[in-house]
Nucleic acid binder design. Structure first.
Lengths: 194, 194
DNA sequence: TCCGACTATGCAACCAGTTGCAGCACTGTA
DNA sequence: TACAGTGCTGCAACTGGTTGCATAGTCGGA
């Protein structure tokens, strides 16, 4: 598991509260790592107990029970240790491919619209990533090592989405060969007589 | 969750025992959906209770306590229902990108060799996929709808691996700009004085 | 005949992630 | 002053996945 380490990284970049972390995870880091606020609070508790981070109640006063977390040397050492470890690859694991395979076994189920929908969602994400890239990494500017790495990470997202878009295009073309009947699952199911 | 549906699909393609399913998951379906034998046995139990599948003890006799599972009409109906549902996209979620980002915050940690290693693993997988493609989907042959879909699924894997390889090449090039010092984490960490 | 390797199934405990809900503090507005 | 909205934290229950271990039959070889 590495949610703790994702949080350490995020806190090093910017000490914040659990809530802020949760919101941040909807943006930058959240592009490639997900967590709910529940997970984050629980994990912050553990990390504090482990001596990796420390919290102080309410630094910029007034705002409720807010606690701000920051990384202790032990946490930084742990992050350094962990970052150097080698980890297995994240394997391709996509529910939709299972659906496609099911479609192959039990006859055309009219997945065309769903393919279109998914392609469009990927295209939305790609557009969003490109917008971030245009804003934060203008061409020509060299940038620090840190900026180069952040750009690299963004490019991983771009590459990922672009790859899927290309694949969905191919899939749509391949399934279009079935002809117009592909859009009518009921009729085809009846054909199979079950 | 959709392990149950992956199992239904797999059982429709070929009725088999839990153990065989587990081994099959190391191959075809396992390229994009993972499951341990524990998960599979537990799930088969649930599915049988739900009336989606039925089991008979030891059809091709002699072999231990082996049970063979096959899909019932209710299971096929359920699979059909599920395959038509729309599901959220699988998002990019990669631990290594967190490590990279940690490297950006706490200075060069010498991730070069790990990048190389990961690139090589992706290349291995890509080679394996290409071998399967050459064997099962020779160019020129048209093939049935089912074969076209299976090819499509394989191509998703190929596209995925090829994308990562391209990205790792880019990453290696981008981090090489740091010069030879990048491979010596200790020295650089000391530089930072913590 | 015993032993180790492999096929095959399963229990129990644990861990991570999700969901639903509740509570409290503050802010703006009616 | 009351009330709705939102920032912020948290408990409790559940689900899915992992790990470690136990068992039992079968087969081939020393």
């Amino acid at each position: 598991m590495s949610l703790a380490h994702a949080l350490l990284t995020s806190l090093l970049e910017q000490p914040s509260s659990g809530y802020q972390l949760a919101r941040r995870f909807d943006k930058s880091i959240g592009h490639f790592w997900r967590a709910t606020h529940q997970q984050i609070y629980r994990e912050l508790g553990r990390m504090e107990k482990a001596g990796w981070i420390r919290s102080e109640p309410d630094p910029d006063a007034g705002r409720g029970r807010k606690r701000s977390y920051s990384v202790l040397p032990a946490g930084e050492a742990e992050l350094m240790r962990w970052a150097g470890e080698s980890a297995p690859l994240t394997e391709l694991c996509d529910e939709f491919l299972v659906r496609l395979r099911a479609d192959a076994v039990i006859g055309p189920l009219g997945l065309g619209p769903e393919l279109e929908r998914r392609r469009a969602l990927h295209a939305d994400k790609l557009r969003a990533y490109h917008a971030i890239e245009a804003r934060d990494f203008p061409p020509g500017a060299e940038g620090s090592r840190q900026r180069r790495i952040h750009h690299l990470i963004l490019k991983a997202g771009i590459q990922y989405e672009a790859g899927w878009i290309a694949w969905y295009d191919e899939a749509l073309a391949a399934l279009a060969l079935d002809g117009p009947g592909e859009g009518k699952p009921q009729a085809r199911c009846a054909d199979r007589g079950r």
